[in-house]
């Protein structure tokens, strides 16, 4: 489904250059619950950004669902936006909800971008909010929700468009361990029931414990790739 082949990425930070990815190759199959782990600066966020089409690799190949993203004959930046819009869901460490919108509106926005009819948006948004345990809280703005509830809204926003893959960058880092575990359980149950593919970046052992497959990065290289449970 997603093929990462010999990806390289280098950042220039002032006069220093940082080789964030130094030839990463990875195949992610449909329905996987994959954790990319590693210490700070190991390249896990960069890899997630490249897979999520919000950053481009300097070299190497990336294909998502048959679309060649990187390398020769890669898709245009306009098509990349369409891929992000329709096929990729993001869950951010700091939730990144729009504070002036209610929980319902934050989730519905992802569907509005797809140009769906209001009735379909209403149906799908209500359903996913119930799914993540936020029934009855649709009209609350983020400031009136706890951190865990906000992250549930973010998960709902990522899932509502029924994406090919959900990319979550340290999704529990801003949550206490109990709430973080609840979020992980939620994502895991969705993965098991619906078959949505999840890829996390983390350095949290608890997150790693939940993963079916654990891929460790170190200095921009895959150190180990371990399948713990079959998806």
């Amino acid at each position: 489904m997603i093929n990462v082949t010999d990806i390289h990425k280098e950042y220039i930070d002032g006069e220093t250059s940082v080789r964030a990815l130094r030839g990463v190759s990875l195949h992610i199959a449909k329905g996987e619950f994959l954790s990319i782990a590693g210490p700070s600066g190991s390249g896990k966020t960069t890899l997630l950004n490249v897979i999520g089409c919000i950053d481009t690799a300097d070299s190497g190949g990336l294909s998502i669902d048959g679309d060649r993203i990187n390398g020769a004959h890669g898709v245009s930046s306009r098509a990349l936006i369409e891929i992000r819009r329709a096929k990729i869901g993001f869950v951010f460490q700091s939730f990144n909800l729009i504070p002036v919108l209610t929980a319902y509106e934050n989730v519905a926005m992802a569907l509005s971008l797809l140009g769906l009819a209001e009735s379909e948006i209403r149906e799908r948004t209500t359903k996913i909010l119930t799914e993540v345990g936020l029934a009855g809280m649709e009209d609350r703005r983020p400031a009136k929700l706890s951190g865990g509830q906000q992250q549930r809204v973010a998960v709902a926003r990522a899932l509502v468009k029924d994406p090919l893959i959900v990319l979550a960058d340290e999704p529990t880092a801003n949550l206490d361990s109990e709430t973080g575990e609840a979020i992980l359980k939620l994502m895991k149950s969705i993965n098991q029931r619906i078959g949505t593919t999840f890829v996390f970046s983390t350095h949290d052992q608890m997150v790693m414990d939940y993963a079916d497959r654990l891929c460790r990065l170190h200095d921009g290289l895959i150190e180990s790739d371990e399948v713990r449970r079959s998806a």
């Binding site: 679309d67 306009r78 369409e82 819009r85 329709a86 140009g115």
Partner: peptide, 19 residues
């Protein structure tokens, strides 16, 4: 289904003006 690189603008979904 692969995303077509040559999608016509009018066929691409867009955020409605209401939103």
């Amino acid at each position: 289904m692969p995303v077509q690189d040559d999608l016509q603008p009018k066929r691409r979904p867009h955020a409605g003006p209401r939103m």
